[in-house]
């Protein structure tokens, strides 16, 4: 009896220690980024352009807008493709082709992002001899597709079959039932998956180095190179200048903030989903 209690509390103790160990890196990252980044973070940082070396102040307005444009381009490409492949995988779950797509998606998900960057360089930069926001969007989109496809598939499979039967019994075709009942039933969860995919790719540097590259100027032209927070932070961080290091920390803080907001949005959407599955 006593022994059992002892073993049990030991076990709980180990689990607790593991949780703390897991949280330490997160806490330290947040601490460093916030404490270092906050020094250079002010309104100017969001509204001003970078200044030349030696000139203090300035901001990353171009990079912030660039990151938003790049993630938007990626989403534009990845959401339709990802959601539709997810629908295919769940609708034809037993077939060999569906298993092949699932395997391909999982493999693509594991491909290092630098490889995706090089690949996109080959298909979207070299032919036009031009770095562009579009190429960056394609690289990010390629990374988002498997995440969105797999989330969509899994969530669709969770929708009770009786829902689909209800639609079919009212004279819906299979496609109609999927797009008007099954998919909407899973939509809040799919949105969560999309937002998490966004959070994941917003912090990518490697796929952008060979695609959207960087731009010292403010640009919204998708056929031109575009700045992004990650590449800008990278450039500044490896520079020898103290000013630029401070700016890099501030940029990192903004990135963490974006990811944090995405996670919050995802939580919010998930809560909405659980309200829907009540029966």
């Amino acid at each position: 009896m006593l022994r059992r209690k002892l073993v049990s509390s030991l076990f709980v103790g180990f689990c607790g220690a593991a949780v703390i160990l897991a949280l330490i890196p997160l806490a330290m990252i947040l601490f460093f980024v916030v404490s270092q980044g906050i020094r250079a973070l002010n309104v100017d940082f969001f509204t001003h352009m970078p200044t030349p070396v030696g000139e203090p102040g300035g901001g990353m307005a171009n990079s912030i807008v660039g990151t938003l444009i790049l993630t938007a381009l990626g989403s534009l490409m990845a959401i339709p493709i990802g959601v539709l492949s997810g629908v295919y995988m769940s609708e034809y779950a037993g077939t060999r082709f569906a298993s092949a797509i699932r395997f391909a998606a999982d493999t693509l998900n594991g491909v290092p992002s630098i490889v995706i960057g090089v690949f996109t360089y080959g298909i979207a930069v070299l032919p036009f001899k031009q770095f562009s926001a579009l190429a960056g969007g394609i690289a990010l989109g390629i990374m988002m597709i498997p995440i969105i496809a797999r989330t969509t598939e899994e969530l669709l499979l969770l929708v009770p079959g009786t829902m689909r039967e209800g639609a079919l019994a009212l004279g819906a075709t299979r496609a109609r039932a999927v797009f008007t009942v099954v998919l909407p039933a899973a939509a809040p969860g799919i949105v969560t998956g999309i937002v998490l995919a966004l959070a994941r790719i917003a912090g990518e540097t490697a796929p952008l180095l060979f695609t959207s590259f960087n731009n010292r100027f403010f640009s919204t032209n998708v056929t031109q190179p575009i700045s992004s927070l990650t590449v800008q932070v990278f450039t500044y961080a490896i520079s020898p200048y103290e000013d630029w290091h401070r700016q890099a920390w501030a940029g990192a803080l903004v990135l963490v903030g974006i990811v944090f907001v995405c996670s919050l949005l995802a939580r919010f959407a998930t809560r909405k989903m659980s309200g829907f599955t009540r029966s």
Binding site: P160, M163, E165, A169, L170, T180, V181, A185, T277
Partner: peptide, 24 residues
């Protein structure tokens, strides 16, 4: 038409549930 043994309303509003068949 069919009414199922286990009730299976769509995760939509009451109105949209009834309107569904009429719409499609």
């Amino acid at each position: 038409g069919m009414v199922f043994q286990k009730s299976n309303p769509f995760p939509k509003s009451i109105f949209e549930n009834v309107a569904y068949g009429l719409r499609i």
